[in-house]
């Protein structure tokens, strides 16, 4: 097919604009800005072609060594996984309860700047320490075991949850606060009836999300002796003969975390949207709780 002449006479005299050069240069700058640090990093990490070449084989050897998994240690593994869950749960509870009041002090729309600034800095400061580093510093004070790990996770959670919650509080609609103020409500009443109803669903969803993250963090803490399943993984991987057991520990951990992730995300969606999700796992969960069929009008009849 020949290229048709698309230009009608009437509009052909409109001048074509010049292509802006800015985006072109921006693209080049971004690419260079990525490649240079990447190369610099590669030189420092003892990365050689032969290592990259050998890596897949080595990983395959490890995976092959872990399968078939050896399930003989399962009861003990489950106990350790549960310990990790307990640590994560208490850590989340600590983080949630302490961060909740602090979040109000860090939100610029309900607290003066002289208060928000120090509280926010406090949040940033405790967030800067990874849980593991905190746990390392707590162990000499509280001894080995889940206790130090719980405190480390709790403290770190205060920082992360405090920041997220204060952002939620800053995002609420000012109207209700003003209305309560106008009808003579105290500061506490303004918060209780103007802010909390708007912010709480999202904040609770963040708590649950933090729990999901804390499970991963607490699983890791075992590595330094702060309780949980981490120690088991490290221990089992040390000797080749134990690799099948390590495989079993890994699989059990993955399954547990996967189940909790799924349940938690269903609940989070429920909290935020206000109605149940229609996904298959959500339906199973609803069926399990027997909450799938009742028309809501029945409450009024009862």
């Amino acid at each position: 097919m020949t290229v048709p002449d698309l230009v009608p006479d009437a509009v052909s005299d409109v001048p074509r604009p010049k292509e802006p050069q800015f985006t072109k240069w921006l693209r080049i700058i971004i690419v260079v800005g990525l490649i240079i640090p990447l190369l610099w990093s590669a030189t420092g990490l003892e990365i050689s072609p032969s290592r990259i070449w050998e890596a897949p084989g080595q990983i395959w050897t490890l995976l092959g060594g872990m399968f078939p998994p050896d399930w003989t240690g399962t009861p003990k593994t489950i106990e350790l996984i549960l310990e990790s869950l307990y640590v994560a749960w208490i850590g989340t509870i600590i983080g949630a309860t302490l961060s909740f009041p602090l979040a109000f002090l860090a939100a610029t729309n309900v607290a003066p700047r002289s208060v928000t600034l120090p509280v926010r800095s406090f949040f940033s400061a405790i967030r800067a320490f990874p849980e593991l580093v905190l746990a390392i510093m707590f162990i000499p004070a509280f001894g080995l075991g889940p206790f130090a790990g719980t405190l480390a996770i709790g403290l770190h959670s205060i920082g992360t949850l405090g920041k997220l919650s204060s952002e939620v509080i800053e995002g609420v609609d000012d109207g209700p606060i003003e209305a309560i103020k106008a009808s003579g409500g105290t500061y506490f009443q303004q918060m209780r009836f103007g802010v909390v109803p708007q912010a709480l669903p999202t904040i609770v969803a963040y708590w649950l999300y933090r729990f999901e993250i804390n499970i991963r963090a607490s699983a890791v803490l075992g590595v330094i002796g702060a309780g949980g399943v981490g120690a088991e993984i490290v221990g089992r991987l040390r000797f080749r003969g134990d690799w099948p057991k390590a495989g079993a520990v890994l699989i059990l951990t993955i399954i547990t975390v996967l189940l909790i992730d799924t349940a938690s995300s269903i609940i989070r969606r429920r909290i935020i949207t206000g109605h149940a999700s229609s996904s298959r796992p959500a339906k199973w969960m609803a069926a399990l709780l027997g909450a799938n069929d009742e028309p809501s009008t029945e409450i009024a009849e009862a």
Partner: peptide, 30 residues
């Protein structure tokens, strides 16, 4: 995606350190 996401950061470190050599930053990068 969902399975990988359940594995904590340090577990990846342990696995790769075991596979490609203990004490190597290459394992950390992986």
């Amino acid at each position: 995606m969902n399975v990988f996401r359940t594995i904590p950061d340090l577990f990846w470190g342990i696995l790769f350190a075991t596979a490609v050599g203990f004490g190597s930053p290459f394992a950390g990068a992986l």
